[in-house]
Amino acid sequence: MWRYIGRKLFVYLLTFIVAVTINWMIPRFMPGDPVRSMLSRAQVSDPEALERMTNYYNDVFGLDTPLHQQYLSFWSGLFRGDLGISTMLYPEPVLDIILRSVPYTLGLLLPAIILSWIVGNRFGAFAARSKVLDNTVLPVGYVLTATPYMWLALLLAWSLGIIAGIFPVAGGYSFSLRPEFSWLFISDLLAHWFLPFLSLFIVALGGWAIGMRNMIIYELEADYANYLQALGAPRKLIRRYAFRNAMLPQITGLAVQLGTLIAGALLTEIVFNYPGLGTLILSSLNSRDFFLLQGIFLFVVVGVLVANFIIDIVYVLIDPRTRVQMTGGSS
């Protein structure tokens, strides 16, 4: 077991190093010069001042050193928790900006992923029970899962936000409020949270329900289910076995889906102008803020890796077949 975890950790570490390297490369090999765009914003016309400011900024961001040195100093900074200084919100450190946005994204993603997974699985298993439910739930599920995230987000914002006026359509909280621990602020936070959450939840729900429904039907046709039926076991017992066994592929599915869900969250955040990492990515892209972009990607990569690692461990705990393979059998 520990050897297995050690091996997994090693693989994840390698993935992490490769991902961080690519992550460092992309913004640097992207067209466009961030220092120049900063200077053009400052509208300096004197060429001599321009030259001096360019040198100053290059020095501050370390952009004048050779690439390999930039790479090494990036890694050493990483271990000190120093992700550099943002050019967009100069001179705020990247880490502070990201940490400000992470709670919003996590608060949106975690409930959406977990609730849609639980509800979708229950719903799919329930749908597999009867023909009528199956014939109604399945098409709805297909439509939901094929819905683009931002389209549904727009639809919800328009219908529930603008037409019905129940929920606010933009921002993390009202501009008139100040972040504090009060009932007023928290309820406002929840009201702003609800629509982005709902759109993520609904799209993910369909996929899980369809997957579960198919898996349950497959499991109910499996040999062990037939055997139990021949021995007169009640449907309840067989369904319980089928549900548990059908969960296993769904857990793997969760690991695979995480990346997609995060991408979906980015689009949804942008539509609702939600102050999470998604909106931050868009604005840092627009202002060519390498350091910020790099830092956000780093967080996303680490998040996905950690989540996958947890799922790997959970899988070993719940599926005896992998557990037996890991430990080489109990005999």
């Binding site: 499996a222 040999d223 062990y224 021949a230 021995l231 076995y241 005896p320």
Partner: peptide, 23 residues
């Protein structure tokens, strides 16, 4: 048929290798 199954009539299926719940 349920009361008869297992108590009175039982079966060793063709697929005995996969007749047990794997988990």
């Amino acid at each position: 048929m349920v009361p008869l199954r297992y108590h009175e009539i039982s079966l060793i299926p063709q697929y005995a290798m996969s007749a047990l719940n794997p988990t």
